[in-house]
Amino acid sequence: MTSETETGKVQAKPEPILQIKKLCIDYPIAIGTVQAVRDVSIDLYDGEALGLVGESGCGKSTLGLAILDLVREPGKIASGEILYHGRDILKMPKAEVLALRGQGVAMVFQNPLTSLNPLMKIKDHFLETIQQHKPDILKKDALRMTAELLEELGIDKKRMDDYPHQLSGGMRQRIMIALGLIMNPDIIIADEPTTSLDVIVEAGFVDLLNRLRMKFELSIILITHNLGLVAEIADRIVVMYGGKIMEEGTAEMIFHRPYHPYTAGLINCVPNIDVDQAKLTTMAGSPPDLVHPPKGCRFQPRCPKALERCAVEEPQLLTYRDGRRAACWLYPEEF
């Protein structure tokens, strides 16, 4: 991946394939503007798996959709850049954005049960996508491509003639992945890909994703609140809270030495099978009102370690010596 030395000094770091720069996304609603995403900057490198974690409503799904310029109405990208191989997606002509969707960046959605058109056969989903991006491909070649990919994912090619309702949830999830892979994108964004699946299917999904990542040389952005899933897939983790990045670092740093109290709190909430507890650990309070975000640090009202300063001044996202980034007053710059 990146060629960082021990000290965190960068040596001829390769260009990221995707760079999100100072992205802000607003949702105008009746009582004001929801600041769904604020000043988020993330780099994604070739072949990397990035986990994007946070509670519901922290802006992670919105961020995922923004990468394809698909923020749901009435949401708007207020400012910032999203560079795909150095070119800003937000400034591309419409036709290029259409070509990019599915072909450069593909998305696997939360709910495989509702993400397939119930009136279309499985194969027609694939045909439509292939013919949209590569109109020259003959129908029989497109069908062969589809059959090969489905077999690769362990789905009998006879299933291509089925309608979505005739397939199980796990199968539909694999079909959603195949639909994402069919145009050979270099980035896959998986938004809560396992929420509607049971644990056994989820475990299979993790194996599959790891295998596909190697085989298709994919970069992955995994959006989830499921820390277990992130632990098994992601190399690097971005923790978001209230539309902002709280902390970012390698999976190892985040899980073993979290800086930010929010990160630590999230990890604490994962039940541990070795500890005998009568009650699950939860984090006090609820996600912030993003129309009127709290003064200072957005996490401060819920933070167990909050200082006086936290309610007054907002901490900047600083890069620390080990390469991680965090936005917290507890850690001075030289830490």
């Binding site: 394809l68 698909l70 259409l98 070509a99 599915g102 993400s115």
Partner: peptide, 13 residues
């Protein structure tokens, strides 16, 4: 609906 969003994400005009 989700399938409409999914179709858009596949680059369907």
């Amino acid at each position: 609906s989700d399938y409409v969003l999914a179709a858009r994400a596949r680059g369907i005009p």
